[in-house]
Design a protein around this nucleic acid. Structure first.
Lengths: 135, 135
DNA sequence: TTGTAGATTAGACAAAGTCCAGTCCTTGAC
DNA sequence: GTCAAGGACTGGACTTTGTCTAATCTACAA
C-alpha cells in the first residue's frame, strides 16, 4: 500500500492544498485504487463506511486536484468525466462495450507528425485514445 | 457547393436511411458547412428559417447518422458531443480556450507502438486529440 | 478565546441527452 | 392517384452530470 495517510498529506501540501478530512478521503480512493473513476463512483466509495462527504465537495475537490496537477481528466465517454491519478505522460485504451479504461505507457506509443500550431497557441497535451470493442 | 439536394438524398439512401425532410435539413447543415457542430447548434441552424425540426429528431437523426457511418462523434469536450461530417481517418486539434476543432489528416500524423489488445477485442478506432491553448 | 479565511453542505438549478405515447408522413401495392 | 402500414416526428416529461449559492462549520493565528 504505497499511500499512507502521511504520504497523502504530504502530496496535497506539495500541491498547495490544505489536507482536510474530505480531501484525504477522496485522494485515498483515487490513489489507493489507481483506477480511472468518475465523480459519482468516488462519491459512493468515499461514503461507503460513513456518509461524510457531499456531492458538491467531491466535484469541488476533483476540480481542485485537476487544477493543481494532482490528477488528470480522461475524456472518452460523453456521459461522464473520468479522473486519472496517473499524471505521467500516457495514453488510454478504452473498451466502448464495458467502459473499461487501461493505460498505455507513453514510452511505448509514439505520435509523429504533429502539425504546426496556429500562431499564439501552445500544446496543452496530446491524448491518444484507442477505442476497442468485443469482436 | 458540393452537396445538392439530390446528392444528399443519394448519400442517405446509400446508407439505408430514408431521406425525410428533417434528415435532409440536418445533413445539409452538416455536410454543407463541413464543420464540427454540436446538437444544439444543429438544432438552431436547422430551424433558422422555419422551425420545423424538434430537438428529439435532431438527436435521433445524429445517432442514426453515426450508427450508419455517415458522420463521426468527436469527444473532446465533456460538456457536449460534436459531430464530424468527415469520416476519413483523421485526428483533431482542439483549442481548449475557444472550443475550436480543426482536422489533422491521418496521412500527416502517425501513431506507432499500439499495444496488444485484450483477447476477444478489436480496434474500433484510434483518436488523437492535440489540445492547444493560447500562449 | 476569538476573528476570519477558507472548506463544506443541502438543495436549487442548468444543460445535454433520452424516452414516451400520440400524431404525421413516406412508400410500395394496387 | 389512393390507401394502408410501418416508420418518422413531436412536445414535453424525465434523467443524469455537473455547477452554484447562501448558510454553516472548522482550523488556526493572534
Amino acid at each position: 500500500m504505497p499511500y499512507s495517510r502521511d504520504t497523502l498529506i504530504a502530496l496535497l501540501r506539495r500541491h498547495d492544498i490544505v489536507p482536510t478530512h474530505q480531501r484525504l478521503e477522496i485522494a485515498h480512493v483515487l490513489f489507493g485504487r489507481g483506477e480511472h473513476l468518475a465523480a459519482d463512483q468516488i462519491l459512493t466509495l468515499v461514503n461507503q463506511l460513513h456518509a461524510e462527504t457531499s456531492k458538491a465537495t467531491v466535484y469541488n475537490t476533483l476540480n481542485l486536484f485537476r487544477d493543481r496537477g494532482l490528477i488528470r481528466e480522461v475524456i472518452v465517454d460523453p456521459k461522464r468525466v473520468f479522473y486519472d491519478p496517473n499524471t505521467q505522460p500516457h495514453h488510454h485504451l478504452y473498451n466502448v462495450d464495458t467502459g473499461e479504461i487501461t493505460d498505455i505507457d507513453a514510452a511505448d506509443l509514439a505520435v509523429s507528425g504533429l502539425p504546426d500550431l496556429p500562431p499564439g497557441t501552445v500544446t496543452a497535451g496530446v491524448d491518444v485514445i484507442v477505442r476497442i470493442r468485443a469482436r
